[in-house]
C-alpha cells in the first residue's frame, strides 16, 4: 500500500511529500523489487488458473519458478505480460501497474516463450529487424553479437529451421534490446546441451550486467545452477518460497552405508533420519541435524563402505512434494 501511494507522489504536496521523499530515499537503500505480485488470481471457468499467487523478485536476482506441467507457471507469466488479465489481485513491474502501464513496462522486458512461433515467409534477419523496430534504439550490433554466440544463421528462412534453431531465434529476439528484466518460460526445451550451456553463460553475463531474470522451469537442475531463489508452484498455488542455498543447505545429507554384518532395521532410526531403507548389508537414508550424532552411531558398527552426499534439489523437492501430499491426505 505504501508503495502504491508513493508512486502517485508527484501530485501530493506539503508534509506528505516530505515523508514520501524520506521514504523513497530509505527505500533506495534496500534492494528494489522489480516484480511485485500481490494475491494474483486467474480463473478460466473452473478448470485451470492460479489462485492467490504472491511473490517479489528483487533487482538483479535470478528467480526460479518451479512446478510440474500445468501448475500455473505460464499463466502467471502471461498475466505479468498482460497477455491475459487477472481475475483479481494485482502486480507491478518496475513499480508500474502491469495492466495500465503495460507498454511502458515492456520496453525493458525480454521474453522467451516456451514454444516459439513466427510469421510465415520471413528470414531470421527480417524477423529480428521487425522485432528491433519496436524498440526505440539501435539493436543491430547486439543482434549480430547474439547471433554469433548462439551460432545462428541470419539469412535462413525461419520456416526451414529446426525446433532448436527456432528457439535460438527466440533467444536472440528476446535479448537484442538489452532488457532489464528477462522472463523465460521453460527456455531450454529443444536446445542441445552445448547450446544450453552457452545460453546459460549468456544469461549469467546479462545478470552480471544488472538484468533481473525470472526463470520458469520444471527441470530442477537448471534452476539449481542459475537461480538465487525459487518459488515452487503446484496446482495454481505457491507452496514454498525459498533461497536455493537454504533449500540445499537444509543440512540434508544423503548417506549410504554398507556394513559387514546385517543390522537391525531400527538401528539408524534416530532423530533426523528420514527415507530410511535397510536392505540387509546396505543402508540408505537422508539425515538432517547435528552430523556428530549420526557419525557416532556409524562409528559403533563395523562398516565396509560409506558415502556421504549433498542431495540434489530434485531429491529435496520430491521429498518435499511427497510430504506435502501426505500432509494433505
Amino acid at each position: 500500500m505504501v508503495k502504491n501511494s508513493m508512486l502517485g507522489s508527484e501530485e501530493k504536496y506539503g508534509n506528505t511529500l516530505k515523508v514520501l521523499v524520506v521514504l523513497s530515499i530509505k527505500r533506495g537503500v534496500d534492494k528494489m523489487n522489480v516484480i511485485e505480485v500481490k494475491n494474483l488470481t486467474k480463473t478460466y471457468g473452473k478448470a485451470r488458473g492460479i489462485s492467490d499467487v504472491s511473490f517479489n523478485v528483487e533487482q538483479g536476482e535470478v528467480f526460479g519458478f518451479i512446478g510440474p506441467n500445468g501448475a500455473g507457471k505460464s499463466t502467471t507469466i502471461r498475466t505479468l505480460l498482460s497477455l491475459i488479465h487477472p481475475t483479481s489481485g494485482s502486480a507491478t513491474i518496475f513499480g508500474k501497474d502491469i495492466i495500465k502501464d503495460s507498454p511502458a513496462i515492456k520496453k525493458d522486458i525480454g521474453y522467451l516463450p516456451s514454444e516459439v512461433f513466427y510469421y510465415e515467409n520471413m528470414r531470421v534477419k527480417d524477423l529480428l529487424k521487425y522485432s528491433a523496430s519496436f524498440y526505440k534504439k539501435d539493436c543491430g550490433k547486439r543482434m549480430k553479437e547474439l547471433a554469433k554466440i548462439m551460432e545462428l544463421d541470419l539469412n535462413r528462412k525461419i520456416d526451414d529451421l529446426s525446433l532448436g534453431n527456432k528457439k535460438k531465434v527466440g533467444i536472440v529476439q528476446g535479448l537484442l534490446h538489452e532488457p532489464k528484466l528477462i522472463i523465460l518460460d521453460e527456455p531450454t526445451s529443444g536446445l542441445d546441451p552445448l547450446m544450453q550451456h552457452k545460453f546459460f553463460e549468456l544469461l549469467e553475463e546479462e545478470n552480471k550486467k544488472g538484468a533481473t531474470i525470472l526463470f520458469s522451469s520444471h527441470i530442477l537442475s537448471e534452476v539449481q545452477r542459475l537461480c538465487d531463489r525459487v518459488a515452487i508452484i503446484k496446482e495454481g498455488k505457491i507452496i514454498k518460497l525459498e533461497k536455493i542455498s537454504t533449500l540445499k543447505e537444509n543440512n540434508y545429507k544423503k548417506i549410504h552405508i554398507e556394513t559387514t554384518t546385517e543390522i537391525g532395521k531400527d538401528y539408524f532410526a534416530i532423530e533426523g533420519v528420514t527415507d530410511l531403507v535397510v536392505d540387509r548389508h546396505k543402508v540408505d537414508f537422508l539425515f538432517k541435524g547435528d552430523i556428530n550424532t549420526v557419525m557416532k552411531k556409524i562409528a559403533t558398527t563395523p562398516i565396509v563402505n560409506i558415502g556421504v552426499e549433498e542431495p540434489d534439489l530434485e531429491e529435496i523437492f520430491m521429498h518435499f512434494y511427497e510430504k506435502e501430499e501426505a500432509y494433505e491426505q
Partner: peptide, 17 residues
C-alpha cells in the same frame, strides 16, 4: 491463430496501436 501473439504483444505497444 498463428501463435504470434506472444511475439507481438510483449512489445512496448498498446493493443490500441
Amino acid at each position: 491463430r498463428d501463435k504470434t501473439a506472444e511475439f507481438l504483444f510483449v512489445k512496448p505497444i498498446s493493443r490500441t496501436t
